[in-house]
Design a protein around this nucleic acid. Structure first.
Lengths: 347, 347
DNA sequence: GATTAGCACTCGGGGTGCCGGAGTGCTAAA
DNA sequence: TTTAGCACTCCGGCACCCCGAGTGCTAATC
């Protein structure tokens, strides 16, 4: 009675979880007995279920109701009982076709958004979210453009094709020619570096220039340093919000719904939810209360980072009720993340 | 009996609408009689209400229930009965402070997003949507940057500070120097023109260059033409989706909710909803079935275009149930649109 | 000793019936 | 023309009951 299950217990738990995933209703002993081909009578199943309840894997919403898996029940299921199903052919194909289609043409954020859409519609079950972080990627180019009498636009393009721009205020006295020179200079510095590396480089370079005392180049470095100081915020894309309205557990409780929708509007919350997936290589599954946002104890997150070479670029994941079809959703996310990585790899 | 109301009828209609806006419940004759200071007894009110029902301004959900305004009831109210309230001081202040704060610093799309957020939270009542159209704005600059072995990034900055970029495929043989030259050339052409004007200019210029036969410049023009051919899609920002969950009329009907949330995920639908506001100078109010999307007969849209000089830049509006506090929401949107225009004006 | 059949028990949900209140329309009186 | 009065309607809430699904326990069976 230490949390480890014998084979029978495990099988029962598996069936309870799977039935519950399907029906969203408490599962009774009869149902399980039938599912297991009557090897065991309902009465026996009841005993086993009582044990499982004692161990915290199941709960009864009320006496004389069937059982419902707890978060730890789901956790046990995911960790030990899940049949690692391969992805169904048509889904693989769809994802691959999309990847192939997007690979060449669209801009990077469009690629990500398309993936997010498709993944949300394939999983039906949940909402798709994609976060991405720019700073770690190596740059392709860095350019300053005039964007107003006293503002300048810094456009950075990474090797993977991400484009980011930010404004720098209060620069009125640089001519178009100056900017061209500065661009040439900065680009020489930038090639292949990531933004933080670039920052370091600039600081080094500033010391040198001080000696040489080239006013324009010094100016260039100052501008670069200022722009990079701010750090780039994550981008968040949420698709398929409406899917949560297909889940009875949410529709029955408007408060939950509201909390979730509100969360979708807060970038920082989404980022927190998918943060873990950025660090780790493997897919991350946070079930119910396990997820890092305490105010959302009824949702699960299945997410995986995607990468470009060494650096993690972002993470893609599904958000939905704890009652999720993990055996479907996990390979789906895994595969998508891998595809996404490879799309960016071949750019 | 031709749709025009005498004073008494109008007053009764006004009170029914206002009470219904407040309570979301059918309104009875007693309530109205009280609201009107007992000048008329409930019985009289009942007669008047029966007339209003006959004229199509009110309906009874069932016999022995109070009355609910129809879409035409709301329409009549908005057109003739609405006390054009001025905006409350604190709301004006908040909007103004925001405008002042954003004016200088942020990039244009950030400004719009902030407005959208604030407007959604001030109106509580509904969701905020902003659409914006780039093509008509005069350009400040146009730049080509290398973004991959065989792709080039076109970055256009408008005078109002909107930044847009798009990729051009299959250009491998232009050196960085070439790009600099091309940029200088294009920028000379571009100054002060809008994208479509630019297109025309480029076509003219192409004829000339053909004569001169300058290969690089011809190349530049081709690139420019290709990039501009595609036309820029509208940007859509939706904020405060969760607010619709505060409206009992939506929460009671999950199907409606789903339709609305789905609509929010379709750019094209949102654009259709706010389209009218782009054309007209004045604020646009579409009540219930009046709005251009037939599949959403239970929502109203209050929207207004905002402009930069002559050209309309986009429109900002609220989406919510037909039962909206128009007397509050209309000035709110009007004022926001005006502020937004002025923010962009002073750039 | 494990399994199972049997049985008593519990609880939620759905259906029914009843009542009260809010509201109406109509009529007749003011 | 307005209004008081009255009969009528219908919704919503409440109590009630019953049924079914499910349980736990016990005693018999393998």
């Amino acid at each position: 009675m230490n949390g480890v299950l014998d084979d029978r217990g495990a099988q029962v738990l598996r069936h309870v979880v799977e039935d519950y995933i399907e029906t969203a209703e408490p599962v009774g002993s009869r149902t399980i007995s039938k599912k297991m081909g009557q090897q065991l009578s309902p009465a026996t199943i009841r005993n086993i279920m009582a044990d499982l309840e004692e161990m915290g894997y199941l709960v009864q919403p009320h006496t004389s109701a069937g059982r419902v898996p707890t978060s730890s029940g789901f956790r046990y299921y995911v960790d030990y009982l899940l049949a690692r199903r391969r992805l169904a052919r048509p889904e693989r194909d769809q994802l691959q076709r999309m990847a192939a289609g997007e690979a060449g043409s669209a801009s990077a954020d469009e690629v990500v958004r398309q993936f997010s859409r498709l993944l949300s519609s394939l999983s039906r079950q949940a909402c798709v979210v994609v976060v991405s972080r720019l700073s770690s990627q190596p740059l392709r180019s860095l350019n300053l453009l005039r964007a107003g009498v006293d503002r300048i636009l810094l456009v950075s393009v990474t090797q993977a094709g991400w484009v980011e721009h930010r404004l720098i205020e209060g620069e009125r006295d640089l001519s178009a020619d100056d900017l061209v020179k500065i661009n040439a200079y900065l680009n020489e510095l930038a090639a292949g570096l990531s933004l933080p590396q670039m920052r370091v480089k600039i600081l080094q370079e500033m010391k040198k220039e001080k000696a040489r005392y080239d006013r324009l180049m010094q100016r260039a470095l100052l501008l670069g340093a200022r722009a990079l100081d701010e750090g780039s915020p994550a981008e968040v894309y949420v698709e398929g919000r409406a899917n949560i309205l297909d889940k009875p557990e949410f529709v029955e409780d408007v408060q939950k719904l509201k909390r979730i929708l509100r969360a979708f509007e807060e970038k920082s919350i989404i980022v927190r939810l998918l943060d873990r997936a950025l660090e780790e290589e493997a897919i991350q599954v946070s079930i119910g209360t396990e997820n890092p946002v305490e105010s959302l104890p009824d949702i699960s997150v299945v997410a995986s980072g995607y990468r470009l070479g060494e650096a993690t670029m972002g993470s893609i994941g599904l958000i939905g009720p704890v009652r999720m079809d993990y055996s479907h959703v996990i390979p789906l996310v895994e595969y998508s993340a891998r595809l996404l990585s490879s799309v960016f790899e071949h750019r």
